[in-house]
Design a protein around this nucleic acid. Structure first.
Lengths: 123, 123, 123, 123
DNA sequence: GTGGTCTAGACCACC
DNA sequence: GTGGTCTAGACCACA
């Protein structure tokens, strides 16, 4: 587990992203209980308030809900999670594609670069 | 031309990115003269100071240089530009690839999604 | 019967309000016996301690009293109940009125909106 | 100007409500500039962070937007404001109506009480 | 022990 | 000077 933060973006935003990815990818299971804020804060070496802020954003997105004194739980709405996952993926693809085109790469070259990257991975 | 700025990142950084892309992709030609800061600032509806700061970063990267009285010019060092372009592209590929993997997509699925995107483009 | 709780206010407070309304409106009859805490707790899917606290507030307000072995009973003091009911209603009217005025509605418009609502009800 | 806070609800929530009312009622004009957080915080005798949190909620609702270094501004989208105002009013009416019915008041009695309140106002 | 709220105060980025 | 972020630490309400 990484818990390292870049200095060019707010920590809370990076926490949102990391936790969100864990939920969308299924590493945190739907309906499961999340570690307590205090524990997570200690683990990430961050002030509990910062984590709280991150969670409040996740709550808005409907990925997480709170039970007053019992803790925080991941949404059981698997459809919503899957839909967000695909949406997130689509954005990533479009963003990547657009940036590569801005850089002057043709569609063919883009696919080539990606497959090359894939082959590196498979070594 | 867009010149719209997201509110979650500094304007000057967004300016750096846009101009940099235009240089790397060749839209601004090597050795060519850049529009005056005043004109660009008016076009982008931005404080000239902000553009100034953007250019000072581009100068540091060696993509732009200033000639006292004649204005700002794009670097003629095509090798440097091409090398930066490839470096930039590699980062984009890696970042994209990593995020998709975090989302739980297999290497095969990633390539599929990209080629699908490519086909959309070709319609 | 609803027994759904908003997450932004303490459950016990919401219980107090619901039960109080049932007493003031006469749905729970003066002098009548209340269901046992255990039963109510099961019905509302709430911790018995939470209900206990709710009832202790209702006892303070004099709407409910406990008889050691026989259970909890609703006050027989109909005058007190009626007086509380009117007081509660007055507060509701004033609160509503004040909020509507803050929203910029004139006295006439407020009455209009209420009568419209009444007509909807009568369909 | 009041700036008094009840102790049974979070201060930031009360700030949200007060400011929201001022926007919806037009007391804060569409497109207008809001006082700086520091000023408002001093005026309300509250920590700036608390106000910041309140504003972040208003921003989500689309009632307010921030310009990086210039300050916060009220939305110019008058349609949106008017629509929110009506929605807010409708909720108020329904909530009021429902509570009165729960208290056992007939539709006629409710209208009577409101008009009585209106007449008090007109003295 | 859980989450929620608030304060005081500091530092940063931006214009 | 403006808003944004973060920390440290305290206290509260709830179950």
């Amino acid at each position: 587990m990484s818990w390292q933060f870049a200095s060019d973006r707010p920590i809370y935003a990076q926490l949102v992203e990391v936790i969100q990815l864990k939920i969308l990818s299924g590493e945190y299971e739907p309906g499961g209980k999340l570690p307590s804020i205090r524990d997570l804060a200690a683990e990430a070496a961050v002030n509990p308030n910062t984590l709280q802020r991150a969670f409040s954003e996740l709550e808005q997105k409907g990925l997480v809900h709170t039970q007053r004194t019992a803790g925080r739980f991941i949404s059981e709405d698997q459809d919503r999670i899957e839909s967000l996952r695909q949406q997130y993926a689509k954005q990533a693809v479009q963003g990547f594609y657009g940036r590569m085109q801005s850089l002057g790469y043709s569609t063919g070259e883009i696919v080539t670069l990606v497959t090359e990257r894939m082959e590196e991975e498979n070594l």
